[in-house]
Design a protein around this nucleic acid. Structure first.
Length: 437
RNA sequence: GCGGUCAUAGCUCAGUUGGUUAGAGCACAAGAUUGUGAUUCUUGGGGUCGCGGGUUCGAAUCCCGUUGACCGCCCCA
């Protein structure tokens, strides 16, 4: 056993693990491109103050933060949102709207590792800046769905729960709660699913007993699971704010349905995300079977760019983690097999044939074909075994008989058929064969 | 930060009330097999039993500490 281990919550990516993660990244990147999002990246190390400004001083306990040799207080990035807000904020005037950006990056949090939660993990982040209307939510929710459906996951595997922090605030205001009371109630609502009635303790300790009738209304609102129920619940109120929120809800749900993704989305007002910086719609993606933690989460954060020193710029965004996504893909048997297997395995008769084989191997590789061959001289039987185990589709046979005739034998390793092709056409012949011939 | 379970080969694990040189399957490597692959057989490499200390004539086994993994709580950007 080696004297050193990786740090807790950090992972080594052996080739098999790496290719699993690459598959996840590939799907995310292709999907984001299809939605016409632009990729960016940023520093792994940022000023500690950036995260304290966004999340408060308490966040430091959960950061990989330290003082650098120049005396600067710094932190490994725990998330992308503050960074991307800074980047967009700095050049907001020069960027074409809508600003649709994504990134795939590794993040670091000083927390106790658990299933689906590590200290170093990767996330796909997608954000839209400069669009105040629900069109941005439609675009992002569709992207989120496709980022999971792209693995072969279906509406039976995951669901998007949609909620709305502003709607909650306006509703609680209409019921007569003040701002501080509403905030305490949202905390209770966030924990209600897990803690039940105990969730209201924080509220009652700070603001006194909660009127039974009002509590019932809050709980009824929390249990709303459809647009129809929401409309009915809001009907008695004559609030313009509530009417405007309802109009946005109709647009989002209609837009997502028109894309054929309506089955993936569920109205669920019990999701409020405990994060104070969200200002409107919030949404989370969950494993349907419920034995994994959240797959993805996001929402609208219209005040954050300004808070971090930029212009007043509306924004919506979400993030998906690689850890939980990987677990779900694994559980559903959707992991790809041998993603980077060679396409061609070259079987070489002996030393005299090696030079000819090398010339063609290099020509094929330069043409982009994935080619493998044995380093040492081996019996034909062993080479065919190795070819088969490599996962290659084709074997090219460079034997004395073939080279004397100026040909190469191509063997299809799946159906075991063979044919001879002229050596000077080898690249074109292999391409045709790989294309399905 | 708190509580629980666990740690033996690359992987999955066995290992008696403490007793000689710590085992199996899989995986890996070589040979049987000098022009055709999934079988079979033979052989081989690989472990200071997570690490440190203690008890004992003797520790993988018992005790203490420590590190790590997993599960739950807190938190979850």
């Amino acid at each position: 056993m080696a004297g050193f281990q990786s740090l807790p919550g950090f992972r080594d990516f052996y080739p098999e693990d790496f290719s699993r993660r690459q598959h996840i990244f590939r799907v995310w990147r292709q999907t984001a491109s299809a939605f016409s999002f632009q990729e960016y990246d940023a520093p792994v190390l940022e000023p500690l103050e950036l995260y304290k400004t966004k999340s408060g001083d308490e966040i430091e306990a959960q950061l990989f933060s330290f003082t650098d040799k120049g005396g600067r207080e710094v932190s490994l990035r725990p998330e992308m949102t503050p960074t991307v807000c800074r980047m967009v904020g700095a050049k907001a005037g020069a960027l074409k709207r809508p600003i649709k950006w994504f990134s795939i990056a590794e993040f670091y949090r000083y927390e106790r590792a658990q299933k689906g939660r590590l200290r170093a993990f990767s996330q796909f982040n997608a954000d839209i800046f400069g669009e105040p209307g629900p069109e941005a939510e439609i675009e992002l929710i569709a992207l989120l769905i496709q980022c999971l459906a792209g693995f072969g996951l279906t509406k039976d595997d995951f669901t998007i729960r949609l909620s709305d922090r502003d709607l909650w605030f306006f509703y609680l205001e209409a019921l007569g709660f003040n701002d501080a009371q509403s905030r305490a109630l949202l905390t209770a609502i966030d924990r209600y699913e897990k803690a039940g009635d105990d969730a209201f303790k924080v509220y009652t300790e700070a603001h006194g007993a909660l009127d039974a009738g009002l509590k019932e209304k809050v709980l009824a609102f929390l249990k709303i699971k459809s647009l129809g129920e929401l409309e009915a619940a809001l009907a008695p109120f004559k609030s313009e704010k509530l009417a405007a929120r309802l109009a946005d809800w109709r647009k989002v749900l209609a837009g997502v349905s028109a894309m054929g993704l309506g089955d993936f989305i569920a109205v669920d007002l019990s999701v409020v995300r405990g994060l104070a910086y969200y200002t409107g719609f919030v949404f989370e993606a969950f494993d349907r079977k419920g034995d994994l933690r959240a797959l993805a989460g996001g929402g609208r954060y219209n005040d954050l760019v300004k808070k971090l020193g930029g212009p007043d710029l509306p924004a919506v965004g979400f993030a998906i983690g690689d850890v939980t996504t990987g677990l779900l893909i694994e559980q559903r048997g959707l992991a790809p097999a041998q993603a980077n297997a060679p396409e061609v395995y070259v079987v070489i008769g002996g030393a005299p044939e090696r030079a000819a084989a090398f010339a063609d191997i290099q020509a094929l590789r330069a043409a982009g074909v994935r080619v493998e061959y044995p380093f040492k001289e081996l019996a034909f039987g062993k080479q065919f075994k190795a070819a088969s185990e490599s996962g290659a589709k084709l074997a090219l046979i460079y034997g004395g008989d073939e080279l004397a005739k100026g040909v190469v034998k191509i063997r299809d390793l799946a159906d075991r058929s063979e044919r001879e092709v002229p050596r000077n056409h080898i690249v074109a012949s292999v391409r045709t064969e790989l294309a399905g011939g």
